[in-house]
Amino acid sequence: MAKILRVLREQPGIRLAGLMAPGAFWLSVFFLVPLLIMAWISFLSRDPLGFPTPPLTLQNYWEIIRDIRFAPSISLADGLAIRLFEGLYLELFWRSIWLSLLSTVITLLIAFPVALFMARLPPRYRNLALFLVMIPFWTNFLVRTYALQFMLRSNGPINTLLRALGLEPIELLFTPTAVMLGLVYGNLPFMILPLYTSLEKFDWTMIEAAHDLGADTLRAFQRVMLPLISPGLLAGSILTFVPAIGAYITVELMGGGRTNMIGYAIAQQFSASVNWPFGSAMSLLMMIIVTFAAVLYFRSGRGEYRNAI
């Protein structure tokens, strides 16, 4: 025993490996191996029941990209503005990314003032505010989404109130707006918390210094505050964007399947449509795209603000 301890003390490499072993084991068994299995399945064919079977094929990936064609257009439907290409699955990928980005921006715009307010509270109220932000986690997300669904129903509280005020009721549930609402609602705490952490550490003398040197409020924000809180901003954006793009419950319950997103489409390949190889191919492609986007995003942030804090 003493000998093992001595080796651990004297060999930082071995000590590090020892510390990482449980986590590495866990991730290998429950994340890496399934991921490799999924990658393998994505190259297999589909048997009559929809389950994976040899031979190896690229058919699944071809399926995703084969109907893509060059067709520039401008439309306002679904919040999609300018398109260069058309294609069923391309559309799906693109809409998922676009809706997730939009939900990230909306979440950020709502979360920032909240986090700012919390960070400016007297210290003894800050923990209470943090507690309040985290309270929703006590309830299962599925249950909360059902509650949200109930709120938006045509005879739910919102429309009842509108009718009582003599206004026209609005059709909210099963619209893209409802999906957006669900995404923003669900991801808000994940944006607030990292932002709060950055803002709470922020030294407000920096803003005074910027003002003192002739920067107005906007430029003090851009040049001094934004770079210094960018770690929280980046973390919050990733924590919001990634769950949004893979959203399933929200798309199902708030969109009713009418606003399709990639996470929902993939889930269907594994259930209703029973096409595991195709679902795996979509998952893997999505993962590659998201990872690529995230790396680009971090790079752009890091290049400029590498030396923040």
Binding site: D203, T205, M206, E208, A209, A210, H211, D212, L213, G214, A215, D216, V224, P227, L228, Y305, N307, A308, I309
Partner: peptide
């Protein structure tokens, strides 16, 4: 008149140098 329009500059007790610059 806001601070950014006054012809004075301050040396802060904590220096308040911008750490990212």
């Amino acid at each position: 008149t806001p601070p950014f329009q006054r012809n004075v500059n301050t040396v802060f007790q904590s220096y308040a140098l911008f750490p990212h610059m």
